[in-house]
Each structure stands twice: as structure tokens, then as C-alpha cells.
Design a protein around this nucleic acid. Structure first.
Length: 888
RNA sequence: GGGAGCAUAGCUCAGCUGGUUCAGAGCAUCUGCCUUACAAGCAGAGGGUCGGCGGUUCGAAUCCGUCUGCUCCCACCA
């Protein structure tokens, strides 16, 4: 015990945390293998392989870790599979940028060389985030760490492509896609963010052609936000019902500057009331125009290249960036007399989520996956409750998305990722197979002259989500995806479906929905039962945390400063499900303070000495009894909160039980006076309560709990709190709990008088008590309110010798000779009396209402009658006291 | 433009199917204490006509309507 006395007054997390994490790892306590127990499985939302830990990860992984640790203590075989995502666009653009700094151009070095650099980059920076997660205490099964581009996981992706292709759900088609001129790739609709952007609406004059390509002096006006695309116009459209423009029918107009002749067409897409009612039709650069073009068989003229610059088709401004071209062409139009006016204008513009470049609608050949059947089933999975979304408000948007989903553009014009397993014959026909060898074999069936040299693989890779949607399956059995009906391996059979998924709502459609699709397709079962959607972490003034704003603290700095347990608490304190998280460092401080409180409560009890000559006193007996019941109640509440994913409520419940009930009430009640020992029964109970509290809070605060749990008793070699069974909620005596609460209120009342009268805590008081107060609680009141003698009596005697107060229906009289000012006392009592009379009046008003008495349930009416009685008796006592005081 | 959600103490939130947890919690604030576990602490206290207005009901923070103010999702009216 002597070395224990050296515990410092301040808890020092850093050494404790590193020590225990290393110990857990060494003993592989997080590792899971299938066995006879019930599995509890979580797959990590894989962070970008080259990413670094930010507050969003902290929130997410703290929640995951709480769930997995809880399950582990509940006796389940807990398995949390970690890993990373190759994040094709994000990673590739980082590598491209790095190469650019080195003076290297991606296109020049070619695919092979580029991928070498990319892998090197991945080796250098990859997985750092997983190291960081260990600092947070994440109890992942690191032996199972996976990467979406591991050879076997990549094979799974390719297999699923082939599977869907052969099923007829993957097709190749020319479509208007969202082109990212920065990332040089198509991105999916979901990767485009629309932002209202200030721009201008330019009113341009298109002169009517005289029929020979020469302008007449009549013109029409066209409003556009993109004057640089006029060279790609292939028609001007009006609404067939627009009488203002009937005269235009059959005429042709000339594109300004280049004087190319284009027809006037009629299409009801054009809104009569919008702009000028005339629409320039640019099929190559606008999705709606493209559709109009299809309807009217218009030619498609593409004037913008992959980099967002004008090409030769534009005839003018060739090579200029689209935004530069816009500025220049406005000037040219003005000089040529084609610019009527310019208006300020604001409209939604699409930006690439990854590169923030303005998206250019562009026609190109891409690969698509049909979504209708997949979406239909995935919707059913949620509607039927096979998968619960928490909070369930997300069901609405989930449904909306599933009902309106479009085919998934799965090809990306990148190199970092799984290359599309399609091979082209010299004549343009293609085969889709898992490997080059099989492809060659199949290709030869079409054309025996084909050789490995003339068979060319598709240049594109697959969308990252086309690999991560397999994650809950492929981390266990990479051979499974693409082969539905195949017998899954032992891991997959045991761990699938996983239990809970914790992730942000921003990837509900990208990822969660698609995992459900893949699960249904390949496993015939959903990949998880519950999806807990966290909020987005914001700073305290509500801004989203981001690197660019610089408002995101580095979690590792926080951990170094406050400890991981404190950071976890800080995060959880403000994270009710579905609400955004307003993070503030003061919450982490609160977490640190809580650690310190726990630490010091341990310092207190470990310093006590058992005295076997002592019998358990009455107060110890009642305190021990009470706290056992309290703990049972808390445990029950906490279990209930966990079952509803209300983690922050669970935390707060334990927090209050630990701090208020255990430290402030229980320990103070049983605390031996200085130098005195403690009886064995009380000490043992106290230690066992402490142990239960540690177990209760362990999933949330893994480090300090292991440290103290190891310290508090002799432990066997290798024993750990990780596998201790969660405390089970026993029954509890409501009367006992409510009696103790009444005692607390009485103590608070007396302490309040002390404060008012400025009586030092050490000065013991004499108190008389009247009314219905449980006798067993008397010692509690005596000790905690600092009372020397406590007399239960029906008569307080001379009221001038002290102060009376009332707690519920209990009356107290504190003897304070010489400290009482009768006038002040009367005033205090009269205030109380006035309040009581008011209260009585309101109760009587209710009871006087015949309708209330007739309609309200028995119990409610009875309650009001009791209120009336209590109030009446209080009033009587108050009046008596006031009278007596006045007569003094 | 369509849809969803939110509005309760200075801050962050809890209050499920209307009546003892009905006006709550944590933090912050104020007052008094360095009391031998903890000043990262202890003990007290103050603070909200539950966004506005109507309605249903014996009774509304809770149900219905409406207005206002935020937030998010979906949607490329040139």
C-alpha cells in the first residue's frame, strides 16, 4: 500500500495510455477468431489511405470503439476490422501535385511509372491514420487490417465488374457526364456540389440570316451565362407557343463573331417567361441542350477540351481557358455590336467535390451500372426494417434517393484504382474478363488473329465506391463478391452480416446504400443491422471543420494535452445522434476533469485502512445499501441508452452517478474521520462499487479504467478489464432511492441555511425534525449536514431560538441561539407563506373545475387532492410559526 | 423550385404515444470556502411566459393549423 500512496494528485494520462495500449496489442486482445460465441462485428468506414486524423474521424471512431468495447464486455466475440480506402481521385491528385512539384508530368512518364510513384507515396504516407487511431484507443483487430487495393480485394472488384457485365447490368455508353477539368476525369452526380455562384447574364444579338449567310438588320436576343460556348451552338430554340417569335419560324440566325448559320427550332423545353424566351442550343456543353439536340437531330459540336480550354472547333480563342475565353469574348462581342446588355446574375453552378473545379458537362463514353433493380431491393431493405437508420429521419431522404437514382457512372479517367477489365480488339469490339489471359482467349473466339499485343485494355479505372461497396464482404472473404451462391469462407459465414455501422450522413448514398445493394446481391442479406449516422463536427460558431478554414484542432495535440479518454469524453458529450456536433475545447477539459475526479476518488479509498474491530455503523449500512440500489438503477438506464444508441446520454448518466452519487454523497457518507479505520464490509462494498463504475465507463474511457482496475486489486497475470462482464442491472428499491433523495434535500436545505447564516461547516448544529421522515436516513443527514444532535419531535418549542424550514412535508428547526433576527425570519416565512397560498389557490382552482374532476383520470385528481392537503398543512405550520415569532 | 428537420436557461441539449421527474441536465455565471481525495476541487445560489399567433382539450413544451427564423437534402430554368 505504501507505493500506492505515491499517486499524484493529478492524473497523468500520457504514460498510462501508451503503456496499456502496447500491452493490449502485445497480447492481441483485440484479435478475433470465429468461435462458439455470438459475434459482434463492425467494419471501419475506411479512411483515405493517405489521410490524416481529423475531428470527424475522432467522433466516428470513438463511437465505434465504445460499441465494440461494450460488446466485448457483454461477452460477444467482438471484431472491429480496420483498413483504408485508396480514394482514387483524392490520392491521385495528391500524387499528381507532388510530381508536378518535382517537375514531372503524369502523361509523360506514363501509367506504369506513375503507379510506381503512387504506390511509393502510399507506402510513405499510407496507414498513418491507422497509427493515429491507436492513440485514440481504438480496439481494432489490427491483424485484419485491409486496404481496398490489396491484390485480393482488387480482384474482388474486378470479379464483380465481370459479374455485372455478364448479367447485362453494366454497359458502355455515350453520356453527358460531369467532367472535372482539374482532376481530368468524369465524376458521378453525387460528387458534384452545386453552389450558388454570382455571375452575369449576357444578352446577345443573333442576327437573322438573309439566307446566304449574310446578316440582315433584324436580330433576336438571347440571354446566356456562358458566352464562350456560342461557337458550339447548333440551333436557337423558341417555344412553339410563343407568339412573339412566330415570325422566326423557318428562319436561320448567325452566330456572332463567327457568322455560322444555325436554324431556329421549336421546343417546349424553352420557358416563355424566362430570359428573352430564346435559347441558344449547345448540345455538347449542356445536358438539356443535349436532350433537345437528340429530339431535333442537331449536330454536336464540342469546342472544349479535357482541360477546359477551347479547341480548334471553336474557330476563335483556341487554346484559351474557358473563363479567360469568357472575358475575352465579351469584349469581342461588345466591339462587334452583338452585346446588348449585361445583368448581375446568380445561379447554381456545379463544382467537383474533390478538386473544387467548375464541372464541365461533357459528352463521353463511360461505363455504367444499371441501378433500378439494385436500388429497389436496397430500398426494401430499409423500408422493411432489416436495416435501421438511426436517427430514422434519414429514411425519407434515403427513399427519395433510391426512387430517383440514375445509372451509376463507374468509370474514372484515372490510373490509381482497379483498371476496368475490358479488352478491345483492333476493330473496336471488346471482351470483359477477369484476366488478360482469359480476355485473349475470348477475343480469339471473335477474331483468331488477335494477339496479346493487339488486344488493348481499357484505360479507365473504377470509381472508388465500386470497391468500397464490397467492404463488409471482401474484408472477410475477397473471393465472395462476384460469385453469389458460392459457399462463403468461415470468417464471412461467422462475421457477416456485421452489426452496426457508424458513419456520417454525407456518405449515406455514396457508400451505405451501395453496401446494402452489394450485400443483397452477393450475400442475399444486408451487410449490417443498424446504421448510426453521426452529425458533422463543427466549430463552436457552427462552421464545418476543414483544413482550409484552419478551424480544426489536431486530435493528436489534444490527446497529448488532455489524454485520449478526455478527448473521447469531449467528443461524446455533445454528440446526440443526428445532430451536428459543436465542438469546443472546453468539453475536452470537462473530460479531463472527470478523469481527475475518478483518479482522486481512487486515491481516497485506496488510502483507507480496514479495521476488523469495527462493526458497520448505521450510516455505513444505509449508504452501502442505498448505493447498491442506485448502481442497479444506473446500470439499467445505461443499458437502455445503449440499446437506443444514445451514447452521450449513457455517458452523462454514468458521469453523474460517479461524480454526484458516488463521490459527493456515498463517499462523503462513509468517509472515516481523520486517522480512523473503516469496517471491512463497507470497504469491500466501496471497492466493488468502484470496480463496477470502472466497468460501466470502460467502453467510453478505456485507459484510466484499465489503469485503476489493475491497481485496485491484485490481478492474475494477463487479466484485463477489457473482458470483464458488464455490470448487470439488478432490481432496486424505489422507496430506498426516494428516501435517500429526501435526505439529500434535507441536507441541502440545512446547508443552505448554513450558507445564509454564514455558519462555518465545522460548527455542528442541533436540529429538530418533525413530519414524515424515514428514520434510517437520520444518520445520513447528521453526518452530511454537520449535525451534532437530531431530535424527532412534534413540538419545536420557542421559535425565536432558531430557524425553521420545510422540505417537501418535512419540517426542520435549526437551533441557532443568538443568530436569529426575528424580523428577518418572519419576512422569510411570509414569503414562503405567500408562495404556498398561491400554490393552494391554483390547485383549488383545478379541483373546483367540475369538468376536470369529471374527465381527468382518478390518479390525477387524487394527486391534486394530496397537493391540496400538503399545502394546507404547510400553511398551517407557517402561520403558527409566524404568530409565535410575532408574539415574542 | 421540391422535400425534410429544427426552434426549450448565456451555451449544448433531454423531455417517447398530452396530467409528479413538467419546466429538466451538463457546462458556463454569481457567492462562500486552499475542509488532510481532488481549486482540473468543495458547498450554496440565480436564471426560461418551452420562437410568434390561433385552434383542439377539463388540461398543451408535448397534438393540429399558421407565421417567422435557421439548417440540411434533392433539383444544372438559359
Amino acid at each position: 500500500m505504501s507505493e500506492k500512496n505515491q499517486l499524484s494528485a493529478i492524473y497523468n494520462p500520457s504514460e498510462v495510455e501508451d503503456k496499456w495500449y502496447a500491452w493490449w496489442m502485445e497480447r492481441k486482445y483485440f484479435h478475433s477468431e470465429p468461435d462458439g460465441r455470438e459475434p459482434y462485428t463492425i467494419v471501419i468506414p475506411p479512411p483515405n489511405v493517405t489521410g490524416i486524423l481529423h475531428m470527424g474521424h475522432v467522433l466516428n471512431n470513438t463511437l465505434n470503439d465504445v460499441l465494440i468495447r461494450k460488446a466485448r464486455m457483454d461477452g460477444k466475440n467482438a471484431c472491429w476490422v480496420p483498413g483504408t480506402d485508396h480514394a482514387s481521385i483524392a490520392t491521385e491528385s495528391k500524387v499528381v501535385a507532388k510530381l508536378r512539384d518535382m517537375g514531372i508530368d503524369k502523361e509523360q512518364i506514363g501509367r506504369e511509372k506513375f503507379l510506381e510513384y503512387a504506390w511509393q507515396w502510399k507506402e510513405e504516407h499510407g496507414g498513418m491514420i491507422l497509427q493515429q487511431l491507436r492513440k485514440l484507443g481504438a480496439s481494432c483487430d489490427w491483424d485484419r487490417t485491409k486496404f481496398t487495393m490489396d491484390p485480393d480485394l482488387s480482384a474482388a472488384v474486378v470479379n464483380t465488374f465481370v459479374y455485372f457485365y455478364k448479367k447485362g447490368w453494366i454497359y458502355r455508353g455515350v453520356r453527358m457526364v460531369n467532367w472535372d477539368p482539374e482532376g481530368l476525369t468524369a465524376v458521378s452526380d453525387e460528387e458534384v456540389v452545386h453552389k450558388d455562384t454570382r455571375s452575369h447574364l449576357y444578352y446577345l444579338r443573333y442576327f437573322i440570316s438573309d439566307g446566304n449567310g449574310k446578316p440582315t438588320d433584324r436580330y433576336i436576343m438571347i440571354a446566356t451565362t456562358r458566352p464562350e460556348t456560342i461557337m458550339a451552338d447548333t440551333a436557337v430554340s423558341i417555344n412553339p407557343d410563343d407568339e412573339r417569335y412566330h415570325w422566326l419560324k423557318g428562319k436561320k440566325v448567325l452566330i456572332p463573331l463567327i457568322q455560322r448559320e444555325i436554324p431556329i427550332i421549336e421546343d417546349s423545353y424553352v420557358e416563355i417567361g424566362f430570359g428573352t424566351g430564346c435559347l441558344k442550343v449547345t448540345p455538347a456543353h449542356d445536358i438539356h441542350d443535349y436532350e433537345i439536340g437528340l429530339r431535333h437531330n442537331l449536330p454536336i459540336l464540342d469546342i472544349i477540351d479535357d482541360y477546359g480550354c477551347l479547341n480548334e472547333n471553336a474557330c476563335i480563342l483556341v487554346g484559351e481557358d474557358r473563363f479567360v475565353a469568357r472575358k475575352k469574348i465579351v469584349k469581342m462581342l461588345e466591339d462587334a455590336g452583338n452585346l446588348e446588355k449585361v445583368e448581375e446574375y446568380s445561379s447554381p453552378v456545379g463544382y467537383s467535390e474533390r478538386t473544387n473545379a467548375v464541372i464541365e458537362p461533357k459528352l463521353s463514353t463511360q461505363w455504367f451500372l444499371k441501378m433500378d433493380e439494385l436500388a429497389r431491393k436496397a430500398l426494401e431493405s430499409v423500408e422493411s426494417g432489416q436495416v435501421s437508420l438511426i436517427p430514422d429521419k434519414y429514411r425519407n431522404s434515403y427513399r427519395h434517393w433510391m426512387e430517383n437514382v440514375r445509372d451509376w457512372c463507374i468509370s474514372r479517367q484515372l490510373w490509381w484504382g482497379q483498371r476496368i477489365p475490358a479488352w478491345y480488339l483492333p476493330d473496336g469490339r471488346f471482351v470483359v474478363e477477369e484476366t488478360a489471359e482469359k480476355a485473349l482467349e475470348e477475343a480469339r473466339k471473335i477474331d483468331p488473329a488477335v494477339t496479346a499485343a493487339t488486344l488493348r485494355q481499357d484505360e479507365d479505372v473504377l470509381d472508388t465506391w465500386f470497391s468500397s461497396w464490397l467492404w463488409p464482404i471482401s474484408v472477410f472473404d475477397p473471393d465472395q463478391p462476384g460469385h453469389p451462391g458460392r459457399e462463403p469462407n468461415a470468417d464471412l459465414a461467422y462475421y457477416y452480416p456485421t452489426n452496426d455501422l457508424v458513419t456520417g450522413p454525407d456518405i449515406l448514398f455514396f457508400w451505405v446504400a451501395r453496401m446494402i445493394m452489394a450485400g443483397n446481391e452477393f450475400m442475399g442479406d444486408v451487410p449490417f443491422r443498424n446504421v448510426y449516422l453521426t452529425g458533422i463536427v463543427r466549430d463552436k460558431i457552427g462552421r464545418k471543420m476543414s483544413k482550409t478554414l484552419g478551424n480544426s484542432p489536431d486530435p493528436l495535440d489534444l490527446i497529448a494535452k488532455y489524454g485520449a479518454d478526455a478527448v473521447r469524453i469531449g467528443m461524446l458529450l455533445c454528440s446526440s445522434a443526428g445532430n451536428d456536433i459543436f465542438y469546443d475545447e472546453s468539453q475536452v477539459e470537462q473530460g479531463r476533469n472527470f478523469c481527475n475526479k475518478i483518479w482522486n476518488s481512487y486515491r481516497l479509498i485506496q488510502g483507507w485502512m480496514i479495521d476488523d474491530n469495527l462493526q458497520q455503523s448505521d450510516i455505513n449500512s444505509v449508504a452501502v445499501d442505498w448505493f447498491k440500489n442506485k448502481l442497479n438503477q444506473t446500470t439499467e438506464t445505461v443499458e437502455d441508452y445503449y440499446s437506443k444508441f444514445r451514447i452521450s446520454d449513457a455517458l452523462m448518466t454514468i458521469y453523474k452517478t460517479f461524480w454526484d452519487d458516488y463521490c459527493s454523497w456515498y463517499l462523503e457518507a462513509i468517509k472515516p474521520s481523520f486517522g480512523a479505520g473503516i469496517d471491512r464490509a463497507t470497504y469491500e462494498a466501496t471497492l466493488s462499487y468502484f470496480e463496477d463504475l470502472l466497468k460501466l465507463i470502460h467502453p467510453i474511457m478505456p485507459f484510466i479504467t484499465e489503469e485503476l482496475w489493475q491497481n485496485m486489486r491484485e490481478r492474475k497475470e494477463g487479466e484485463t478489464i477489457l473482458f470483464q462482464p458488464s455490470p448487470k442491472a439488478g432490481s432496486y428499491d424505489e422507496d430506498l432511492l426516494s428516501d435517500f433523495m429526501l435526505a439529500e434535500e434535507v441536507v441541502n436545505g440545512i446547508r443552505g441555511i448554513r450558507q445564509q447564516k454564514r455558519i462555518p461547516p465545522k460548527e455542528a448544529l442541533a436540529v429538530k425534525i418533525k413530519g414524515d421522515f424515514p428514520e434510517r436516513m437520520l444518520p445520513v443527514v447528521e453526518k452530511l449536514a454537520g449535525i451534532a444532535s437530531m431530535e424527532q419531535t412534534e413540538d419545536f418549542g420557542d421559535p425565536s431560538g432558531g430557524v425553521s424550514l420545510m422540505v417537501r412535508t418535512v419540517e426542520l428547526f435549526i437551533i441557532l441561539s443568538g443568530l436569529v433576527n426575528p424580523e428577518e425570519e418572519v419576512r422569510r416565512l411570509e414569503d414562503e407563506l405567500a408562495y404556498q397560498r398561491n400554490f393552494l389557490e391554483s390547485v383549488r382552482k383545478k379541483l373546483g373545475n367540475a369538468s376536470f374532476v369529471a374527465h381527468a383520470p382518478e390518479a390525477v385528481v387524487a394527486l391534486e387532492r394530496k397537493k391540496e392537503q400538503d399545502s394546507l398543512s404547510k400553511i398551517e405550520s407557517l402561520e403558527n410559526a409566524i404568530n409565535t415569532l410575532n408574539n415574542c
